[in-house]
Simulated assay, not measured.
Amino acid sequence: MTTGPVPNQPRAEGSAATVGDVAALAGVSRATVSYTYTQPNRVSPDLRRRVLAAADELGYVGNDAARRLRVGHSLALGLLISSMSNPVYAELAAGAEAEAAAHGRFILVANSDEDPARERAYLNFFESQQVSGILAAPVGDVPPELLGLRSRGTPFVLVGVAPGPHSYPAISGDNERGGHLAAAHLLAQGRRRLIFVGGAHPHVDLRLAGVKRAIAEAAEPASLEIIRIQVQTAKVGEAVARTLLRRSAATFPDGIVAGNDLLALGLLHGLIVGGIRVPEDLSLVGYDDIEFADFAIVPLTTIRHPSAALGASAVRILLGIEREEDTKGRFEPELVIRSSSLPTPPPSVHP
């Protein structure tokens, strides 16, 4: 059994070195060579040094992983998002890609589609590709696989809210402030029977906390009902609207804050089809200010976070070139007022 490097075997002139050539020279199996480039955590430091030394001697450049290891880093950054169906993530990716390109880097985008198992698979893929860092907007809390990657030398920036004490960088919009703005606006329009519709996500929890704070601070009493859903899509919003339409006038809300704009647009469609006048009978506020919000049949009032700026900021933090605004960790939300929340004023009476 071979236990150490063996003399270099001659190859045909002009032929490229193969995995087998590297394995023979390093005195290891072909699988060890493969793991060195694709799953380096499975190879001991000593074996890895032997494989890389043999690859250098033979000029082995058979795959991109080998070339990246020779220069010590990849030009690629990984971007993990929870749902590509939400346009806010497309804006986030656009901002990240533009900032990365300005520094000669590239973005690999992975969509977990709200599936934690798929999320874990993508994180393993990023590690196999030796990305130099990861921007993560996960399904829920920070997955342990991401923390494991960091412990093995791959940094990440959380694009979201970090749970509890943490030592990694995190950046997000101020979701609690955004929820407060949304509810305070509805209360200012005289709405008193509010509903919050949202999914189970740390960002949405903070938006709900802001809504509760606005109601607690209101000068006049107001009620709040909370409707929790699994996913925040337009289809789910429309389904929630159908359940609301079965209520009596006494239990029907006069204001709704939705966890995101897709959900709000589904609610808007379902309510209008059901004969509810928006905003005369009910005021509606979404969240994110996606492009479609301004083009709805009744333009949607919403809370805007600078998603593209968040993506760009996360890239700068990851590359260690952050600006002063990047170090604050929170981006201020903005209330964008459109027709869906403003009751139509009564017609003027002329003498």
Rank of each mutant, 00 (worst) to 15 (best):
I303N: 03
L135W: 01
D261N: 13
P87Q: 02
N175W: 02
I229K: 07
V33C: 12
N124L: 07
G275N: 14
S283Y: 05
I229W: 05
R68K: 15
E97W: 04
R118S: 06
L263P: 06
H203P: 01
F106P: 09
D281Y: 00
D261M: 05
P351F: 03
R228S: 15
Y37T: 00
P165G: 07
P10E: 12
S29E: 08
S313N: 02
T344G: 11
P346L: 10
A314I: 05
R323K: 08
E145Q: 11
P347V: 09
V231P: 01
H305R: 01
T251I: 06
G275Y: 07
S29V: 01
L92K: 01
P116A: 11
D64K: 06
I303T: 03
A121K: 02
R207K: 11
L284V: 04
V159S: 03
E145G: 05
V349D: 11
S151W: 01
Q189M: 13
I134C: 01
S172M: 03
D174Q: 10
L135E: 07
E176D: 13
P7M: 06
V161K: 07
P165R: 04
S313C: 11
D56Y: 00
V22W: 03
F295N: 04
A222Y: 10
L342S: 15
I297E: 14
G198I: 04
L310I: 08
V131P: 02
G95K: 06
G274Y: 01
L187F: 13
S74P: 11
E217Y: 02
G153E: 12
I303E: 03
P138L: 04
A136V: 02
E57S: 13
P343V: 08
N86E: 14
S83E: 15
D294P: 00
G173V: 04
F125I: 07
P253S: 10
T2G: 10
G20Y: 00
R213W: 01
S151Y: 02
E145L: 09
T2H: 12
G199N: 08
K328Y: 00
M1N: 07
G286H: 05
D64V: 10
